[in-house]
Simulated assay, not measured.
Amino acid sequence: MSDATEGFPLDARARGPLLPAATPRESTSHVIAEALRAAIVDGTLAPGAPLRQDAIARHFSVSAIPVREALRQLESEGWARAEVHKGASVAPLSADEAREIYEIRSALESLAIGLAIPNHTAATLREAANLCRAAEREADSSLYVARNAAFHMSLYAPAGRPQLEDMIGLLHRRGERYLRLKFGLPSYKGESDSEHAALLEAVQRRDIAAAQSLVAAHLLGTGELLHRFLTERAQAEAALANQPKPRGRRARATNGS
């Protein structure tokens, strides 16, 4: 960690330039937001970690203005939390939020897939199949999250509902941190791959009812799994924190005198 970042936990040397010179289509604030989001997803920026504007600005060699814009964007997407007199920090993981994200996704994606199926073509179905296979072969959890989202969105794109697609895309981004938790448990990747294959087959058959049922079950199941995992982890952490601390030598000596 360099002195220039003053404690900002991103290693620019390991990651390469975080603000590439040739980004004419992206604003500086967008590039910063993307870099911070990636650091939150991969755990470099842990839940509760402070997001200090001055340190971030020095790290990216920019003024405070694009940093403020980036932090506002992350806050609106649920990645960051701002508190009066405390500044911004990485939003904590929440069992209830994880479940709710997937409940909403279930409703929206059931709608989207029903609208999309009549408009699928041989070309769009080939693309969905290729993306499904790419996700199945992917072993890296970070890349899997991206391939998973691409597969899902390929099923809904023919619906021709850009606002619905934007809403689903936002929820995918909100759920990235949580989805990585699921695929930290290796047994669940195979289960998810099987569910994706069954969903693709239903779309290929143009079976709207089956596809809607499968996508709803897939997403609701993920939400319940994440809720249970995070709840149990929080309970275990609370129990550990409440355990009596071992008494030191001085305390034992005092009690024995």
Rank of each mutant, 00 (worst) to 15 (best):
R126K: 15
R126D: 13
E127S: 14
A128Y: 12
A128P: 10
A129C: 06
L131D: 09
C132Y: 07
C132R: 14
A134M: 02
A135G: 09
A135K: 09
R137H: 14
R137N: 08
S141M: 08
S142N: 11
V145R: 13
A146M: 10
A146V: 05
A146D: 15
R147Y: 08
R147W: 04
A149R: 12
A149E: 14
A149F: 06
F151W: 12
S154K: 06
L155R: 02
L155Y: 02
Y156W: 09
A157Q: 14
P158H: 09
A159E: 04
A159S: 13
G160D: 07
D166S: 11
I168Y: 03
I168A: 02
L171T: 05
H172Q: 10
R173I: 03
G175R: 05
G175L: 01
G175P: 00
E176D: 14
E176R: 14
L179Q: 07
L179I: 09
L181H: 03
K182T: 13
K182N: 10
K182P: 01
F183A: 00
F183R: 06
G184V: 06
P186I: 10
S187K: 11
Y188G: 03
Y188I: 09
G190H: 07
E191R: 12
A197T: 07
E201M: 10
V203E: 04
V203L: 04
Q204W: 05
Q204N: 11
R205V: 05
Q212T: 06
S213W: 02
L214D: 04
L214Q: 04
V215Y: 01
V215P: 02
A216G: 06
A216Q: 10
H218G: 05
L219K: 05
L220R: 15
G221Q: 00
T222A: 13
G223Q: 04
G223N: 05
G223I: 08
E224D: 12
E224R: 15
E224K: 13
E224Y: 10
L225W: 12
L225H: 10
L226S: 09
H227A: 15
H227P: 07
H227D: 08
L230F: 08
E232Q: 12
A236I: 03
A238E: 12
A239S: 11
A239M: 06
A241W: 04
K245G: 13
P246T: 03
R249P: 08
R249T: 03
R249V: 03
R250F: 13
A251R: 14
R252M: 14
A253F: 09
T254A: 14
